[in-house]
Design a protein around this nucleic acid. Structure first.
Length: 642
DNA sequence: TGATCGGTTGAAAAG
DNA sequence: CCTTTTCAACCGATC
């Protein structure tokens, strides 16, 4: 450091890097030898209100923050994670001024919103004379670099990713850097607290995408810029108006947990790590699951992806020199991480339109039901979508709630909701079922449900996989449909997975566990569950028994219809950035009719039964009423076709 | 240019 | 019960 310059006062901005180990940006910050070091997290209203986040992921995030804060505290009793409750776009000038910052350091983030946010903040820093340092660290390789080595184009196959990263350090990610052994002090308590005196911008809660999860209409998470006690505390679920009992997932956040999980796999399950092949892991395995469950830690950065890669790679190399079996790219663990790189780089190349069909040049246009509405100014999806077909809306609701009448699908959707995680192939099953292999509903609807419920939700991977499964991009073999019966049976012939997550069926013979509607009525009575209705009726009127819904359609018939429609759409061959998609004239091309033109606002839609409040509830009530009205022979819903 | 082949992870029937 | 073949047939890279 030049002797003349004042000792740096460094603000370190944590975002999706909630860890101390292998944090290149943190290392860069500390190598400035700051006299003052303030690690912060900005509790961004964008995430609080404009991103779908269910109770399980809220809890996971808070646990990551708690763990990180404790780790800082162990290194320096004056330290912790300082949480600031305001939008970064408005709060940074106040932080710079109030704390006299000289540097702002953070890890780069290539998400659509994040890029825009960071550009704004960098501009504000420049205006305040604060030096900004940004380091890549969220992915194995800097996604912008990967794109550059892919001719500036989105990465569309693993082969392209391999070729691109070969040109960056021969395809070997940087070695992980160690966690710091000490961190400097923050400012004194008085000086830190001085921030509470500044004007505080409280965000508008009107467009709260997560209203359905809150116990109160107006939460108080933004009441004070430094939290309720003015001490920059990490929010609690109660402060977010989220009932803690709604966070039912067994999966917990935090760097300590993540590192311990990785260590355990490597030490106690070397065979599992070394011979891992994703397609051979069971989507029906639960408690414990068949894969590592490290994905949510990669999302929040409580585990470094480079540490994961190198630790696994070291194991693979040791095994190879010992002539023990190993698995290969792309099905092995490093290969799985390459798919993550692929989706990140594709997103980095395309920006915000990556996450939607309209305007997205890699997305094949398919005239699915329940198309999104778009903001006229930005062209980006808004929370509203158009119900062109009442039947499709009912199917979508039943899919989301796990009452389709197909036990394999329902078990997966219920596991997703309660645990915040389902196996990758389970995601394939339910995604294929909702889109091209069943309901013919837009993949954006499904991606939104995953966004809400997954603890490991990562926009790049989630959207990428939804496009993959719906044959929108990356994958095109639409005649390969996952059967909701055969696929589950293949992995779990006894139906243990279904019995656990759909306990209504726990006494059913394995012969009928995936097709309970085929069981004779006498057996249904013996097994204490009647297959009848749409899942909204708890007790069968006639027998008083628990019910499980009849299948909401004839799957084989739907598969045929969907494949024929996919074939037609592929024949028309419109991409998301085609003029006809942009101006809406695709409707004429496909003879797409909007029968009632209703627009649904997803915001306050409750999914747990009886409707909730406001307009959302009314709509649902009507749909549900219609359904149970003709449940006498519910399978007949499938007869409706175009 | 047209043919060939591969594509992380299919399903159902036949052997 | 296991493996192999057929099903119906897509895109994009490659030669």
């Amino acid at each position: 450091m030049p002797q003349q310059s004042p000792p740096p006062t460094v603000i370190f901005w944590h975002r999706t890097d909630l860890r101390l180990h292998d944090n290149p940006a943190l290392q860069a910050a500390l190598s400035l030898n700051p006299s003052t070091f303030i690690p912060i997290f900005t509790w961004d209203p964008h995430y609080a209100y404009r991103v779908r986040v269910g109770p399980n992921r809220w809890r996971f995030l808070l646990e990551c923050q708690d763990d990180l804060s404790q780790s800082y505290h162990k290194l320096n009793p004056k330290q912790k994670l300082w949480v600031i409750r305001e939008a970064p776009q408005t709060v940074f000038p106040k932080l710079f001024e109030s704390w006299g910052a000289t540097h702002l350091v953070f890890e780069s983030d290539t998400d659509g919103y994040a890029r825009e946010r960071d550009e704004t903040v960098m501009k504000l820093a420049k205006e305040a004379g604060v030096e900004v340092i940004v380091k890549s660290g969220r992915t194995l390789f800097d996604s912008d670099e990967v794109v550059k080595h892919n001719k500036g184009e989105p990465t569309m196959s693993i082969h392209q990713v391999e070729k691109a990263v070969e040109q960056i350090n021969n395809g070997v990610p940087d070695r992980p850097v160690d966690a710091p052994e000490s961190v400097p002090d923050p400012l004194g308590e008085e000086e830190m607290r001085a921030l509470s005196g500044v004007d505080h911008e409280v965000p508008d809660q009107e467009d709260d995408l997560n209203a359905a999860h809150r116990t109160k209409h107006n939460d108080n998470q933004y009441k004070n810029i430094a939290g309720p006690n003015g001490d920059f505390s990490i929010p609690t679920l109660n402060e977010l108006s989220i009932d803690p009992s709604q966070a039912t997932s067994p999966h917990h956040g935090g760097e300590s947990i993540a590192l311990e999980m990785l260590r355990t796999y490597l030490q106690q399950n070397e065979d599992f790590v070394a011979t891992f092949e994703k397609p051979k892991t069971s989507p029906a395995a639960f408690h414990p699951q068949a894969t590592t469950l490290l994905s949510p830690h990669l999302h929040f950065g409580s585990l470094s992806v480079r540490k994961f890669w190198h630790d696994v790679q070291d194991t693979l190399q040791q095994r190879e020199s010992a002539h023990k079996p190993t698995s290969d790219i792309p099905t092995n663990l490093p290969g799985q991480l390459l798919f993550r790189e692929m989706f990140f780089a594709a997103q980095a190349a395309l920006g915000p339109v990556y996450a939607q069909a309209r305007g997205n040049k890699i997305a094949r246009f398919i005239p699915w039901h329940l198309q999104s509405n778009h903001d006229e100014e930005t062209g980006l999806v808004e929370r509203k979508y158009t119900i062109d077909d009442e039947q499709a809306e009912v199917w979508f609701r039943r899919w989301k709630e796990g009452r389709t009448g197909f036990p394999w699908i329902d078990a997966l959707m219920r596991q997703l909701k309660y645990e915040g995680w389902i196996h990758h192939l389970g995601r394939h099953s339910v995604a294929c079922f909702l889109t091209r292999g069943g309901c013919y509903v837009h993949w954006e609807r499904g991606a939104e449900v995953f966004e809400e419920w997954l603890v490991d939700h990562e926009t790049a991977s989630n959207v990428g996989n939804w496009m993959w499964l719906s044959c929108t991009a990356f994958f095109t073999q639409f005649y390969r449909c996952y059967s909701p019966v055969a696929f589950g049976k293949k992995w779990d012939p006894e139906g243990l997975f279904v019995r656990y997550y759909v306990p209504e069926l726990k006494h059913y013979d394995k012969k009928y566990i995936y097709e309970p509607w085929k069981a004779p009525v006498e057996d249904q009575k013996r097994w204490e569950c009647r297959v009848t209705g749409d899942g909204m009726v708890e007790k069968d009127e006639e027998t008083g028994l628990t019910t499980y819904p009849e299948p909401m359609f004839d799957f084989d018939e739907r598969r045929q219809t969907c494949i024929a429609q996919m074939k037609e759409a592929y024949g028309v061959h419109l991409m998301g950035d085609d003029e006809k998609v942009m101006d809406g004239s695709w409707k004429e091309v496909f003879g797409y009719e909007v029968k009632d033109g209703r627009v649904v606002d997803e915001t306050n839609e409750r999914v747990d039964g009886d409707g909730g409040d406001d307009e959302g509830g009314q709509k649902r009530g009507r749909e549900v009423g219609d359904q149970s009205g003709d449940d006498g022979d519910g399978g007949h819903t499938s007869k409706k076709k175009k």
